[in-house]
């Protein structure tokens, strides 16, 4: 087991290097730091001195890969690639355009993100599975048909509608919770109720339909027929046998999403003014702060790879037939 994990982590390294090279290429080769400076400072009447100053403040005035002016190891370390990309591997994110430490900001903003993402994830999963079970119980009846059509209709509505509509009805018309904002500690609850609700409702269509197909696939298997042939009640078959076995594809499917919960949800956080990593990313994209975007790309890929690893491990935990090799 341990050897397997170590090997997987070693496999992850080339992928992270690839991600790093790709983002480096996008941000420094496709567009040179000069062009970035010109865009940030405004197109017209920008002096070369201003560009140099802008680059120097951010450490973009060095050579890309190999610094001919430096000696020894510094020829490699005193470059943009080393300063901006290689350091990400030790989670040294550097500082943003406004001088703040990105690593500190990320640590600060992780908690609000999780406070929103974890309830949406757990409660959502429970709700979706319950709905899917109910629909599966009434399969091939009008309940099933209506449920599926409703699910398709719900998943055809843009997330933005749920957010804007929810804010409008709950906050603006009914004055039940604040429209947006955040507070530390337990006071955060009143700010989180609506976003969590919106997050759950936003996913209800697609997820219910997805879990329904998993349940139906499971119900067409032989052991279910055997259970029915033994004279078991449909209720027992569904909750005792099907639910347990369907948990394997469901669990392994959701495990990959767990590490990514840290990244927060872009749209919801930004609409509700929650100071999490999602709104951090959006603000960075809007302000064209490349340092933050690069850090978030790297963090996101690390978490994704962690999710892949956890998925494989969870297979062995829930399904004894699977062995790691």
């Amino acid at each position: 087991m341990l050897a397997y994990i170590v090997r997987r982590i070693l496999y992850a390294l080339p992928i992270l290097i690839g991600v790093n090279l790709l983002t480096f290429w996008l941000f420094f080769i496709v567009n040179s730091p000069d062009e970035m400076a010109r865009m940030q400072l405004g197109q017209k009447r920008v002096t070369p001195e201003a560009i140099e100053k802008w680059k120097q403040e951010r450490g973009y005035d060095k050579a890309l890969f190999y610094n001919t002016q430096a000696e020894g190891g510094a020829a490699f370390t005193n470059t943009i690639f080393f300063e901006k990309s290689v350091r990400l591997f030790v989670f040294d994110f550097g500082s943003a355009d406004d001088g703040r430490d990105i690593g500190y900001d990320i640590r600060q903003r992780m908690m609000p993100s999780l406070a929103l993402a974890i309830p949406v994830f757990t409660v959502g999963l429970l709700v979706y599975i319950t709905f899917a079970l109910i629909i599966a119980f009434f399969r091939a009846t009008y309940v099933d048909y209506l449920g599926v059509v409703l699910a398709v209709a719900l998943m055809s509505i843009s997330t933005l509608f749920y957010i804007i509509g929810g804010q409008f009805v709950v906050s603006k018309l009914l004055h039940l919770v604040p429209i947006s904002g955040y507070d530390g500690g337990l006071a955060a609850i009143k700010f989180l109720v609506l976003p969590v609700l919106v997050g759950i409702i936003g996913g209800v269509g697609a997820s219910t339909r997805f879990y329904r197909t998993i349940f139906l696939e499971e119900m067409s298997k032989d052991y279910v027929r055997t259970a029915r042939a033994k004279g078991m009640a449909e209720r027992v078959v569904l909750f005792k046998h099907v639910l347990k076995n369907a948990m394997i594809p469901i669990l392994t499917g959701v495990v990959i999403a767990i590490p990514l919960l840290f990244m927060g949800s872009l749209i919801t956080e930004s609409f509700f003014g929650i100071p999490g990593l999602g709104s951090y990313t959006i603000d960075a994209i809007r302000a064209q702060d490349f340092g933050i975007v690069r850090s978030m790309v790297f963090l996101g890929s690390v978490l994704y790879i962690l999710g892949l690893l956890l998925t494989d491990l969870s297979y062995t935990l829930v399904d004894p037939r699977v062995r790691l090799s």
């Binding site: 992928i15 991600v19 983002t23 990514l260 872009l266 990313t281 978030m296 790309v297 890929s301 994704y304």
Partner: peptide
């Protein structure tokens, strides 16, 4: 795939 889609 490991780069979050929106960020890419």
């Amino acid at each position: 795939n490991s780069i979050p889609g929106v960020l890419l």
